[in-house]
């Protein structure tokens, strides 16, 4: 998985991998409209079956890449979480997110203002603050709690033009759940909104 990819293969092999990845990406991109001014692209990797949604408009781009429960377990166990706590995280809907300010103005993003709309209703993503109390109660090691905090996409952030961050976003949905996501951000004093339909959490692999 991306968060736990080791570097043992070395930088020298990256150009070939990059070319392969770009070819795969270019060959299988599909587009659909989402919102008044944005565009949503959907890419499903033929080998892994994992899907990445990329939404962008003139000011912001957001990539949401499915993470398998196995990948989430492996990442957090590798950072010092016990199997029970890693399982708790992996029982949620986890994405690797990349958000980028691609416009000319600063933008403010607050995950508590986002909403996932699933079969059980609407809820914002679960941010680091929501989890830390549980980790303190569960006597999770400091190093693991620190890694968790910084691995998650920050709950609130200010992005100047060109700024971008990668981090995990966790939704209070079980694996394999379909949902719709409403994004909200502030730009030049105004709240912007976009709806991303037909998203889906990764499920446990079958077979």
């Amino acid at each position: 998985m991306s968060w736990v990819v080791r570097s043992a293969r070395g930088p020298a092999r990256w150009p070939r991998c990059l070319a392969l990845a770009l070819l795969a990406l270019a060959a299988s991109l599909a587009s659909a409209s989402a919102g008044a001014s944005g565009e949503l692209q959907i890419h499903t990797d033929a080998s892994s079956g994992l899907t990445t949604w990329t939404w962008q408009d003139r000011s912001l781009s957001l990539e949401l890449a499915q993470l398998l429960p196995d990948q989430t377990r492996a990442f957090f166990q590798g950072r010092g979480f016990g199997s029970d706590h890693a399982e708790l995280v992996a029982s949620h809907c986890v994405f690797q997110a990349i958000l980028r300010n691609r416009g000319q103005h600063a933008i403010e993003v607050a995950l508590p203002h986002w909403s996932s709309h699933g079969p059980e209703g609407s809820a914002p993503p679960r941010t680091n603050r929501d989890w830390q109390a549980a980790w303190a109660q569960g006597e999770v090691a400091d190093a693991a709690r620190i890694a968790f905090r910084w691995a998650l996409f920050p709950g609130e952030h200010h992005f100047e033009p060109g700024d971008w961050l990668m981090g995990m976003i966790l939704f209070d949905l079980p694996p394999a759940t379909p949902f719709e996501l409403t994004l909200r951000w502030r730009e030049a004093g105004e709240t912007q909104e976009a709806r991303l339909p037909d998203l889906s959490c990764a499920g446990e692999p079958s077979g």
């Binding site: 998985m1 991306s2 990845a21 770009l22 892994s48 990445t52 690797q96």
Partner: peptide, 15 residues
């Protein structure tokens, strides 16, 4: 692992 690495590369390239 290679597949996951390719996904990472594609993600980074895409941004």
């Amino acid at each position: 692992r290679i597949t996951m690495g390719l996904i990472l590369v594609a993600l980074l390239a895409g941004t």
